[in-house]
Design a protein around this nucleic acid. Structure first.
Lengths: 128, 128
DNA sequence: GCGTGATTACTCGGATACAAGATGTCCGAGTTTGAGCGG
DNA sequence: CCGCTCAAACTCGGACATCTTGTATCCGAGTAATCACGC
């Protein structure tokens, strides 16, 4: 029960892209170097963000990654869901006849957290 | 980023103990059987709850586990922290000069979830 | 000058390696209860 | 009836075994820009 490092990389990388030009894509190598990660690994993380529709990739020379959505339309939850998946954090797995009351409580707690992450936009961090 | 099965077992087992007599301890075997887990594995989980001060163990014949605290003083968060640990779910790990703004948001979100889990008492489930 | 091909700078995706943590199992050791047996 | 011993029913804790997941690397393939060269 911890957030993966990949999520950390994804959040920081998205922040980098937000601070950079929205037109010209940024290369993986540049972004990887500034975080001390290997470029190939970072690219693997970024393809998840591409599949989630958050960014797009431009191949070839001068290529890289670029934000796809509006700058103020990107929440923490979007990024986290893209990396960690959207499945519930807690699954009961037993077969009680009805709904599991424990699972119900856990789901509520999870939603509290998600609610905060959905409302927290990435762009809020950049305008100091 | 998922809750472990051990947490699920711990929550259900605590519920079993809450429903049972608070005086006589319940054996692991009985509780393990009702959940389809191996007794030795469940006992390993329960020792974590013992160390957290939630329950106590009685060894020997007729032994087992027993709640240590008042019935209405046991929150979900107590149990989860005992199993999953209390360390923050998100660690930035980079060395930005100051505090990481991303981590700050994540910590807030985590606290929202914890707040809900702290307020949710286990005993609320049993009195239907 | 202009098209054409080669080179270069990139990303993409799959395969693979490695490490750590979650999930279980096994077994020996200690502890309490209770039954049996002898005085 | 009392006390002792012994067996049975438990938990405890450490040592493994296994499986899944996260983390990371390597490499071949494809693609776009740029450069070079010949016409």
């Amino acid at each position: 029960m911890k957030f993966s490092k990949a999520t950390n990389y994804a959040l920081h990388t998205m922040l980098l892209m937000l601070e950079a030009s929205p037109i010209k894509p940024i290369g993986v190598q540049q972004m990887a170097e500034s975080q001390g990660v290997s470029p190939t690994y970072l690219s693997k993380i970024l393809t998840k963000l591409v599949k989630a529709g958050l960014i797009e990739s431009a191949s070839g020379a001068g290529g890289g990654y670029r934000l796809l959505r509006a700058r103020d339309d990107i929440s923490f939850l979007d990024i986290i869901h893209a990396i960690e998946g959207t499945t519930s954090l807690f699954q009961c797995g037993f077969v009680h006849g009805e709904e599991c009351a424990i699972q119900e409580i856990m789901k509520q707690a999870e939603q509290k957290m998600e609610q905060h992450l959905r409302q927290a936009k990435l762009v809020d961090l950049v305008r100091t």
